[in-house]
Nucleic acid binder design. Structure first.
Lengths: 204, 204
DNA sequence: GTTCATAGTTGACACCGTCAACTACAGATT
DNA sequence: AATCTGTAGTTGACGGTGTCAACTATGAAC
């Protein structure tokens, strides 16, 4: 196979790594294959020997972002109680979006013309989602009413929407106070929790 | 002022309209000022007499998308009951995202380097959000617990996340059934409704 | 030793956004 | 009326981009 190269251990790996650095430094919009090649001291066509097109290099970066996200979710503190565990996962989701805005943008704000053409990336995205679905599937109560996928999709969508709104300039744009921002995460978690369990005893 | 032009009533308007057409035909990524100019039979620099940069033309398009969205929300069927009214608004939000994916992408998936530099666009975005906030402010019950902005932001985020997830290829990607898709909207509306009211009496 | 696939290079092409200098023309000033 | 002036539009250039095509070097297989 001889994947090894003399100067660069593996140009393919180096390209992916450098692309991530560029995105982190100057933003997703500024990423260009020529800049990647330039930084690696290699000709502007060299990356094309490893990726058929620009989109494929981007898809590789996004794919790894999903993978890292799934790993993060998987390594969160575990709780025996399914509800507490799910709550922990929700917090992990939001804190990841907050602490790794670069990865978050890569996953959810990257416009790829044709995601279906990048199956590896989709596999990783699916895996991240499955962590949430499986956690929800462990919840007791109303088991037959709706499939856990549906609950999971709603929670996913709510978390995603919340993270997106908070990440954007929406808060400033919409004229919300700073207090609202700080209170938003626990508030939203409580609201989402409401939708997962009929409050056990209060009987309302 | 003499804003009138002989051949084109107003090149500025024509540019905005043509930009929207291009985005609709070939996607947001394919929009270029040179293509706009080309289609209008005008030199590639003509648009720059009306917009300082490409971002400003895009911001104008996005601004009008927000405006159209707010108009749509404002013209939805009204209900006397605040809860029913809010439910109607949620449906209007989702149906708009479904029926006008172009506008939706413009509003929530367009990456503008510096939104703060486009105050008119932000005003329109703020107005659209205020419709939701005001509808929520009319809700009876737990008035002092949290400000209506917080409820509104959560609902907004959930709707937005749901629309984004459904709009994307996520459903196919995540291996969800078609049934789940059809049931998702009423299900999500019910879940969101849960967070806004202790279930009233089921009678309605 | 020859063959051959592959990684990398060089060069070109058509796009893009934008800067600068130019032309054409409508109004206002004198 | 003649001149000035500001503005819309044009032309041309520059550096940037993705990508196609043709070339070179190298190392393994026969």
């Amino acid at each position: 196979m001889a994947k090894r190269n003399s100067r660069l251990e593996d140009l393919r790996e180096a390209c992916v790594a450098e692309a991530l650095v560029i995105i982190g430094e100057t933003g997703l919009e500024q990423l260009s294959l020529r800049e990647v090649a330039r930084r690696l001291g290699v000709s502007h066509q060299a990356p094309y020997k490893h990726f058929p097109s620009r989109d494929h290099i981007l898809a590789e970066v996004v794919s790894r972002a999903y993978s890292a996200f799934a790993t993060y979710l998987d390594q969160r503190p575990r709780h025996a109680d399914p509800h507490a565990d799910l709550h922990e996962m929700g917090l992990a989701y939001l804190s990841y979006a907050h602490d790794h805005p670069l990865h978050y943008r890569l996953m959810f704000e990257t416009q790829l013309p044709n995601p279906a053409e990048h199956p590896e990336m989709m596999r990783n995205a699916k895996h991240a989602f499955s962590l949430l679905r499986d956690a929800i599937a462990l919840l007791p109560g109303h088991p037959g009413a709706h499939p856990p996928e549906m609950h999971a999709l709603f929670v996913w969508a709510s978390l995603h929407g919340l993270a997106a709104v908070m990440r954007s300039s929406a808060l400033g744009t919409l004229g919300l106070s700073g207090d609202a921002l700080q209170q938003m995460v626990p508030f939203a978690m409580a609201q989402i929790g409401l939708t997962l369990e009929p409050p056990p005893r209060t009987d309302r």
